[in-house]
Amino acid sequence: MLNLIRNEWMKLWHKKATWIMAGLLVLILIGVSGIGKWAQSNMMQPENQPTWEQNLTETQAFTKAQLAEPNIDKEFKKQLEEDLAIIDYRLSQNEPPIDPGSREQHILDSNTMLSLVLMFAVIAAASIVAAEFSQGTIKMLLSRPVKRWKILTSKYVTTILYALVLTVIAIISAVIAGFIFYDSGSGVLLDVQDGKVVEISYWGRVIALYALQFVGVIVFTTFAFAIGSVFRTSSLAIGLSIFLLFMGPNIVFFLREYEFTKYILFTHIDLTGYITGNMFVQDITWPFSVAVLLMYMLLFLFISYWSFTKRDITA
């Protein structure tokens, strides 16, 4: 199996597209940071910016007003109470939040750029099986003393490894861009754990956000891999995956009132909501999300293995 993965890895990196995607990722991530910084410095900065204490006092009053409303959702209430606890703690202990213009905040926000990684990983996943068909090499590949499921597994593992490499490149690029364009700021991250406000590790939070975004990358990559191996053409797989990537959140938004939305894949793609508290759909817990995602992944993989091992090669 290791040899098969080495084969796939070798083929992957001999393709120009692989290098171009990795290079583009670095360029775009650093470029976007540069443009963002440039735009920020060109903006008119109003005189007497409010201090963080003033901002927080305002938010505190607003949150209290919301809590005072009679019939608010239980989950939402709990969320607001935690927010309020953190604000109170910050004001009383003089612990400022992370400065929005700082390097730290920039790196923290950069996890959303993994959608770029997702797109590139989808392209690789869609073509790793389909390309063997379009090149005609599939006949050479499958007339070997290796069972087909092993070959497919090596391709899947390689795709996931490539997605992982791209993610690491993205983190490193974001950090480099942070160091080039932004200055370090002060501030700490706080969270409520077991009813108490505690300080949490900054890098721990960065890694956690990236890891949760990576889950979405894996799910979409698996989807594209399955479509690519069933239809044996990469364009359909890439098109469909990217279409769903953009349409998914809209679909969930339109259907958010219905019960079955809980079982739609896209409701669970962005798990960072469990950390940041921005959830579209209420009443779902993270074990439930993980279970739904696993079911979909298994379904995609089952279709892909079934199709690859059972069907004749007529190309």
Binding site: K11, H14, K15, K16, Q135, G136, T137, K139, M140, S143
Partner: peptide, 11 residues
């Protein structure tokens, strides 16, 4: 096996 026009990984 040699299939008709052996297709190799050209790259």
């Amino acid at each position: 096996v040699i299939v008709e026009n052996p297709e190799m990984y050209k790259y």
